[in-house]
Simulated assay, not measured.
Amino acid sequence: MTSVLVVDDEPSFTEALSVGLRREGFEVRTAADGRAALEEISESEPDLILLDVMLPGMSGLDVCREIRKTTRVPLIMVTARGEEIDAVVGLEVGADDYVSKPYRMRELVARMRAVLRRASPQPSEPEATCLVEGDVMLDIDRHELRVRGELVSLALKEFELLAYLLSNAGRVVTRDSLMQNVWGYNYVGDTKTIDVHVKRLRAKIEDDPSDPQRITTIRGLGYRYERSVTN
């Protein structure tokens, strides 16, 4: 049974959500603050985390940063309606997706299952295990990125996005193609998440993220990973 850790300090909300998730077949654990969440994760790592941004003491963003120091467990950030800045920052510190309160249970479960599918190991295929362009090397088997020989940490969605861009190096990749092939046909979130993840990738692989030479924007269409950009 898939285990979910719900981190939220509102007892009535947590109880109602737990009931709904159990009906959907999930095993649910709860934590009312960041410290309790980190202890729960260290004792028995859940399959997925639902993390509220507004927590007493240690904020959800700080909790996410701590979690990402030790594990790549799928994590969905929960924000109040209209807190777009918090949602973007959540993605930047390592969240795989975010939802805004109030939300429909059906939408939440769809996002949870989509994140879990993306995180689950995929059957091996007869394709290259390393994608290389210039001094950027993405090792699919090891799930590692090296830029100029230096190891660079990537969140799961950043890794999948870069892999898709590299596998199509030199070609324009439309936003619709990215949404379908990286986020999946069932993704129900805002397409602005593509821009957020591209920005995060650029910060990690570009010499000057404000003037990207590797991942370039093709206005009105999408993005292109330029071939063999080296210094």
Rank of each mutant, 00 (worst) to 15 (best):
R22N: 15
R23T: 10
R23N: 13
R23P: 08
E24R: 15
G25Q: 08
F26Q: 06
E27L: 14
R29A: 15
R29H: 15
A31E: 05
A31D: 05
D33V: 07
G34T: 02
R35P: 05
A36D: 07
A36V: 09
A36W: 00
A36R: 10
A36I: 01
A37S: 02
A37Y: 03
A37T: 09
A37L: 02
L38T: 01
E39S: 11
E40D: 11
E40I: 04
E40Q: 06
I41G: 08
E43D: 14
S44A: 15
S44C: 14
S44D: 15
D47H: 12
L48E: 04
L48R: 12
I49R: 09
L50F: 12
L50C: 14
L51R: 09
L51Q: 10
D52F: 05
D52C: 07
D52P: 10
M54D: 11
P56Q: 01
P56Y: 07
G57R: 02
G57D: 04
G57V: 02
G57Y: 01
M58D: 03
S59C: 06
S59G: 07
G60E: 00
G60M: 06
G60L: 08
L61S: 11
D62G: 05
V63W: 03
C64T: 08
C64H: 05
C64K: 02
C64D: 03
R65C: 06
E66F: 11
R68A: 04
R68V: 01
T70K: 12
T71D: 00
T71L: 03
T71K: 02
T71W: 04
R72F: 12
P74L: 01
P74T: 10
P74S: 09
L75E: 07
M77Y: 05
M77C: 09
M77L: 14
V78L: 12
V78D: 12
V78W: 06
V78Q: 12
T79A: 04
A80G: 14
A80K: 13
R81E: 05
G82M: 05
E83S: 10
E84L: 14
I85V: 13
I85T: 09
D86Y: 04
D86P: 09
D86N: 07
A87I: 09
A87K: 13
V88L: 14
